[in-house]
Each structure stands twice: as C-alpha cells, then as structure tokens.
Design a protein around this nucleic acid. Sequence first.
RNA 1: GGAGCGGUAGUUAAGUUGGUUAUAACGCCGGCCUGUCACGUCGGAGGGCGCGAGUUCAAGUCUCGUCCGCUCCGCCA
Length: 622
Amino acid sequence: MTEQTTTTAGAGEERSYDEYRVIQDLGGWKRSHTCSQLTAADIGKVVTLMGWVQFRRDHGGLIFIDLRDREGLTQTVFSPEEAPEAHERAHAIRIEYVVALRGIVRHRPEGMTNPSMHTGEVEVYVQEWKLLNTSETPPFPIEDRVETSEMLRLKYRYLDLRRPRLARNFILRNKAAQSVRRYLDGLGFLEIETPVLTKSTPEGARDFLVPSRMNLGTFYALPQSPQIFKQLLMVSGLDRYFQIVKCFRDEDLRADRQPEFTQIDIEMSFPDEEQIMGMAEGLVRTLFTETIGVKLPDAFPRMPYKQALDEYGVDKPDVRFGLKLADVKDIFAGGGFKVFASAPCLKALRVAGGLELSRKEIDDYTEFVKIYGAQGLAWIKVKEDGEWQSPIVKFFSEDEKVKLAERLGMVPGDIVFFQAAPVDVANAALGNLRLKLGDRFGLIDEKAFAPLWVTDFPLLEYDPEDKRWVAKHHPFTSPQPGQMDTIASDPGGALARAYDLVLNGNEIGGGSIRIHTPAAQKAMFSALGISDEEAEEKFGFLIEALKFGAPPHGGIAFGLDRIIMLLTGSKSIRDVIAFPKTQKATCLMTDAPNLVSKKQLRELGIQLREKAAEPGEKKAEG
RNA sequence: GGAGCGGUAGUUAAGUUGGUUAUAACGCCGGCCUGUCACGUCGGAGGGCGCGAGUUCAAGUCUCGUCCGCUCCGCCA
C-alpha cells in the first residue's frame, strides 16, 4: 500500500479516522423513539435514536446516515454548518456501527421525501451523537435483497437475525404466541409446565437421551411431546391445560422439520371431537386475524382420511386447487393391456391444458415420480382435433377408451397421467405430481389459506419392518365407538377418534380423544403386541393413574413453527427458529454437538467405543 | 441408509471442447463531492477456485475419494 504514493498534488493525505472511533458510554442518554416511529407529527421535537448504521452517504459536506433497529429505518443528517463537531466526527462512521443520535426532527425539503420509507417524510438533524460500538465489516450484507449462503447465515446467525425479513418473523412469532395465550386463557386453560427430563418411551420417534450422573447407567429422555403428562393433568382435575413447549425428536431433518421444535399443546377434560375442533378452529382463526389480518372460514371443511388418499393421494391435501385423482382400475381390469390390467392399483390424473407440456417436461415428471417408487409414468394427450397421442393407447380397446374418456371427462387440450402400481406408490407418485402440476399450471392461489380437517384415521397401521401393528397416531388414542372390540380381530379396520388440521397441504396440528379407562388402554397395548409386563414397565404409571377416576379427555397439538412459517410465507422452518440446526443436526454457530472431556464422561459412567471399532468402517488402505 | 443440486475474492455470481498473469458487480480502504436515500465519482487492495489424491505437457474445468450446505426418499407413534 506504500508502493504507489498518493496520486495528484492537491489530493489530501491518506488518513485514518481512528481518533474518532473512541467508544463512548451512554452517559444517561435514553432512547426516545424507535427507528420506525417518527412522522410529520413529530416535527420540531428533539429525539434520541439508537441503533445500527444501515447505509452512509457521505457527500463531503452533508452526511446521511440511515439508522436501523428491529422496527425500521430513519434517515439522519449531519450538517457541517449546524453541528460542525458532530459532522466532522461522523466521517468515521461505518456500516453496522452502533450509535446514539440526538437531534431535531424536520420535514424533508420539498421533493426530497422518500415514499418507500415508513419514516420517509422526516429526517433527524443530528446535533450530537455517541459512538456506542464499532463493527468489523459484516461477512455478508445486512439486507434482505442479498441472498447469502445458508452456511454463512447460520454461522453468523446473530447477524442474519438483524436482517429485516428475519427480524419481522420473530416479531410476528411473538404476536402469535401472545395471541395463543390470550385466547386459551380466555377459555380457562391453564399454562402448566411439564418436565424436560423425562422417561424414554421408545414407541414412535427416536429419543434424545440424557445420561443420569446420580443414577449411573440410566438415562432420561427429552420429551417427543408432553403427551402423557398432559393426560395426567386431566386425571389431576386441572381440567384445561395448555403449554407452548419445546419437543424433541431424533429423526432426520427436512425443510419443515427440526430436532427441537415448538408445539402449542392443549388438553381438556369432558370434550368430544366437536368441542376440541371448535376450540382449535377458534384458536387458529384468532391467530390469523391478530397476526396477519386474514379471516379464515367460520367452519373449516372436513374430509375423511380415506377420501384424502383416494382423491389427493396424500393424508394432508392442499385443497387450494382441484385436480383430483381418479381410480380407473375397473375399466382396464381383465383387459388386454397387461400393465394396467394386472396393477394392484390404477389411478389417473387429468390436467386441463396439459397438451402444452413438452416431451422434456413429461420426462422430468417421469423422473420425479420415480422418487416415490414409481416405475414410469404413462400419459395420454388429447389433441385439439380430439385424437389421442400416447405411447400406450394402441393397447386399449374401444370400450376402454370410451369408458376412460367418460370417467375422466377428457376434452381436447388435456393430458392424463397414469400410475399402475401398489396403492401406496400410486398415491404418493400422483399425489405429489398433482402438487407440481398445480404449481406448473398456476392453479394455486399463493395468497389463499385453505384449512382442512382430516378425520377418521385408521387406529392402527401395519409395520412390515417390525411385522406388527403400530398406532397411527399414538397408543393413547381412542378408537371410534364400538370398535374397541374389533381391534383384535380386525386391527386394520378400526378407525380412531383422531383429527389432523391441514393448511395448504401442511399438517399444522393433530389430536385425538384419548383412552381413559385402564381396561381399554390395556386392550390397546395388547393389540400393539406390547406384553402386560412391557406395558407395565413403560406405561405403568399411566395405567395406574387411569384407575383413579380419569375423566374422559382429549386434546390437540399444533406445530407452532410450521404455523409461523405459513403466516410469514417462509420456505423453511429455519427462518422462524432463532437458532436452528443444519440438516446434519449441528449448530454452525456454536459447533454443537461437540466432544466432551474424559472427566465429564467418567462422571457419567460412559466410555466411548473406539472409532476404529465401528462396524461398517471399510475401505482401509491395507 | 439412499438420490439430486451446490461449494471460485468479504459477498453474489461468470468462467467455452482442459491452454498465457482467473472475470464482473457489490462490499472494503483512500481522494473529491452540501440533498442523498442501494448517493455519485476517481484511485487502490484483495482469491488460485472446499479438502486430498489421480489423469495430463497443462486442471477451476476430467476421474476417484472426502468434508460441508441445501432439497428429497426412507425415517418422523
């Protein structure tokens, strides 16, 4: 930097402003306004603002500093005439410096207002200011319009959170939480905390375990949900409980799944489904009104689980648009086209306007459905002249063609996709293709919110891996009336008193009426292939409690993070969680999880296996 | 456990069929500038392409391995 001496004569000497970069105390200054508050009504007032430097525009003469806090931006002006000392020192100000400014609110000069700023009508003429802290140049710009890699954002999460879009998410999240508390408190629900160090109940998701120092060799588990505790609170007679509570599941992450997440957990005594669903609808409606001013329908539509799978291929249908699946198996049964005739399930999806899809797009969709186990993707295009263009129609009989056209209502311009596969595959492939096509053909109103109750879930489902029946919801869910007796004889046939709340294709809540008698609970465990001893060992305390006058009870839990994600239009749950984990469940900021000292392990009675002894470790050089 | 996409100055990205000293914009540092608001303008510094092998006369470009981030399947009562 000394190589080339400074340019022309007359140019000033290179200098440093370090002499002005002395950090000062607040010295009794108090903030009078946030950076989004000042309007024309405040003109003439002396105000004190504190915040971060968003932009500086140093004209040599006038210096403009846009000051930012979590609420917004305010333009401040340093003038060499009005406050020479303040102005001279202001040359040293840099982006993200923390400053306190005291000055007079003035109307901006004629034609100089900025309608794109909340505070764009006014500006603060700075009289004196304090440098509260300096800042290194941030690793990425603190602005919404600059996309930055998520790796960097997570490493410097505290800087990412300074960005207005993210900050707004947490302001809204707070609003939502307060709204929930107000609503439930108004209905007599008590907010009660339940343990975070609790008992491992290895039904369902993997538990996070915490070793016990005082009871060597034993472990607590972090709760996957406060399920059993909230039921016990009903036994205790506290009647109505809720909690905004962290839950933990040691499973793989997704855009909408974190290992620790927050539930709005609710339980009430003496309810039926209608009461719980009514209360839950009121909660969600209130939440939407009070946070984003959106009015949801007075009664949310409902759909049985079976219909959801039949018509939408998934158990959480996005009902913002149609495009339903159709079962066409009967048309081709016993026909000449073996692929269709012999399929365990044959479903079709007719898309109006699909004729315009290119070969490439169809190929892409074919690749897409393979994710869900599909072998391929058959299709028929109906050309403008009514002729069918397709690699497979030559195998169809006239009768089959007529019936198919009638069943699906095929008209020129359409494309029809087929899935001949096991029912799970056909549903998943076409159900997810449906979402993609809804997007491709602009069928989804991005501003709409379409809630839907999915009801009448099966009580049990078969787990081919464990070769046993497992609870679809959880093992405390009550079967529908009269079905307790048939569980043993027809485990797959029983329906549960369970309900999920789906919003725009996202599961945002789910609950059930619980089993509240010991006999029924034992019958349930038995249907799940859990022996009496095992049930006693794992859930004895619950069965015991049910013996002492447990009232009928039920409840629901909402995924708060997912709701906030929808309210803020965020693409990832990470954008509504202050300090989220990466897909490998690590924290890039703190480096958790980390190794711990031998001493810590010794105290816990834990010895780590040698890494080299790990099985599956192959490809050694030798 | 598996599939796909990505990793190049502080940041965001470009980088032809492998070919001289690796581009640009923004940011940063400094000069000038009294009405800007993503200020303008002039000048400057800054990377060897995630990491490790290999192929080649030659690798950011090809191969293999590995690490990290993201999306998805499995998993998530």
